[in-house]
């Protein structure tokens, strides 16, 4: 019993730092770069990924003993595509603005390596509880990373976080000159590059 509890808590923490999907495993880079121009779409994207990840992990875990090895990937893809379609419909119905802002990046969750990677590495080998915990942990790790990157980019490019003014811009009579480049693709790449470098430094320090 206690070993099972240990496993749950270690799985829960793994996604947040030790196996953080973005910084440590370098998975699911497309949405990380594409939707982090502002916080709100990043958070919405994060929730979509958590939803799809949890649902697909549950389904895969339930049918893990019935899977035929060579049809495995096909089953995973079918499951993921179904839940992504549902997530997309939910977004369109309840968050139409975010749905237009995210555009094709919602359906692109289908080919996000995190989800198929977790289905393969965790859900198809573990029981329901561990699979759900793993999905939540990985999804949260992903969402937090997305939000951190988005916060940095939004702050530097518009002086706002979650559309609330933090640094008053020159246009509005303040002192901050918005750094427009952070909103462009180059901002995405450079912020992620610097983020990875910072994480590398921290990990080195910890080891030493």
């Amino acid at each position: 019993m206690s070993s099972n509890e240990n496993k749950v808590s270690s799985t829960l923490l793994a996604g947040l730092w030790k196996e953080n999907p973005v910084f440590r495993l370098l998975l699911g880079m497309c949405p990380v770069l594409a939707v982090t121009a502002a916080c709100k779409p990043a958070l919405t994207m994060g929730f979509c990924v958590i939803f799809v990840l949890v649902c697909s992990n549950i389904v895969v875990s339930l049918m893990r003993n019935l899977l035929k090895p060579h049809l495995r990937i096909l089953m995973f893809t079918l499951t993921i595509a179904t839940f992504v379609t549902i997530a997309d419909l939910l977004l369109k119905a309840f968050q139409p603005e975010m749905s237009t802002a995210l555009g094709p990046y919602v359906p692109l969750i289908i080919v996000n390596c995190i989800i198929i990677g977790r289905a393969e590495a965790c859900a198809s080998k573990n029981d329901l509880l561990i699979s759900i915990v793993d999905a939540i942990s990985m999804g949260t790790g992903f969402t937090i990373t997305l939000c951190v990157l988005a916060a940095v980019r939004e702050l530097l490019s518009t002086g706002k976080i979650f559309e609330l003014t933090v640094l008053p811009t020159v246009e509005a009579g303040g002192w901050f000159v918005p750094w427009t480049a952070m909103m462009l693709p180059v901002g995405a790449f450079v912020t992620l590059g610097l983020g990875l470098a910072i994480v590398n430094v921290i990990c080195k320090k910890k080891q030493a």
Binding site: M63, L66, L67, K68, L71, L74, M75, L78, T79, T82, T85, I86, L89, L90
Partner: peptide, 17 residues
Amino acid sequence: LLVVSAFMFGLLIAVTN
């Protein structure tokens, strides 16, 4: 399994839609 789940998923999407 593939056929059954394809049917179930189709049903799920139809209901949501």
